[in-house]
């Protein structure tokens, strides 16, 4: 018998234990007090700021200007962008940024990305209020490394896309019906407390996470 069959045979030969019904996860979350949209937004903002991320509230039409001014303040110049309409919009603005297009850069350009990129911009699919988290499903337009390698990560988040918690996001968006190659939930900049329990940011991933929280434009 090969390893697989031997292991499974041993497990099958084991005596049955006490019954273990499917746990009521839905019931746990249903019993939680519901937050309305304003409460979810406030909770999200407070929680992710507590995790050392910056949150800037803005409007759909205004975020590119806001980003440019933050980038200027922080002295960021070399921007990694993906193949999204948002990236195209940003590129259309006049500004002092150098744009690096992930798609055209290709995989061999990895060393450059690790050493010489200042910041990146990606969209968030949605966010989670209770833990202050951003949910990203990286894809061909916004690959995985964009939210990982550059030292500063700008994230566009639609203010109406804030779920109360991970369970709600999974459930409402039907994650179990089809998971992407990679889904990632990000709660602030990369950090470590491995040296004498002292917190330090920017361990391996971004040192800064800047959330541009976009509301619909007011008429």
């Amino acid at each position: 018998m090969n390893a697989r069959d031997s292991i499974l045979a041993r497990l099958r030969a084991a005596p049955a234990g006490d019954p273990a019904p499917l746990p009521d996860v839905a019931g746990w979350y249903a019993a939680m007090p519901r937050l309305d949209a304003a409460e979810r937004l406030a909770r999200f903002k407070a929680a992710i700021e507590a995790s050392h991320a910056e949150v800037h509230e803005t409007y759909r039409s205004l975020w590119p200007d806001l980003l440019l001014s933050i980038a200027e303040q922080k002295g960021l110049r070399r921007f990694l962008v993906g193949g999204t309409p948002e990236a195209a919009l940003l590129r259309s603005r006049r500004g002092a940024l150098d744009f690096i297009d992930y798609e055209h850069a290709g995989i061999d350009w990895r060393d450059e990305m690790f050493a010489n990129v200042d910041a990146s911009l990606t969209n968030a699919r949605c966010a989670l209020a209770d833990t202050g988290s951003l949910v990203l499903w990286p894809d061909s337009r916004e690959p995985r490394m964009m939210s990982l390698v550059p030292p500063v990560h700008f994230v566009l988040l639609d203010a109406s896309a804030i779920h109360q918690h991970l369970y709600e996001a999974m459930n409402k968006e039907g994650w179990a019906d089809g998971m992407p190659t990679n889904a990632v939930v990000i709660s602030g900049p990369s950090k470590t407390a491995d040296i004498q329990q002292t917190l330090a940011y920017g361990a391996h991933g971004p040192k800064e996470v800047v959330v541009l929280l976009c509301r619909e434009n007011q008429e």
């Binding site: 499917l22 746990p23 996860v25 995790s51 369970y167 992407p180 709660s187 991933g205």
Partner: peptide, 29 residues
């Protein structure tokens, strides 16, 4: 189930290091 992860992930970091959540939750499929 996938949603079992949601529960275990609220227990794990809080029990381990007293953090409400870890910075990265990485789902690889």
């Amino acid at each position: 189930k996938l949603d079992h992860v949601a529960i275990l992930n609220t227990l794990l970091p809080r029990s381990a290091t007293g953090q409400p959540v870890e910075t990265y939750q990485n789902f690889i499929s």
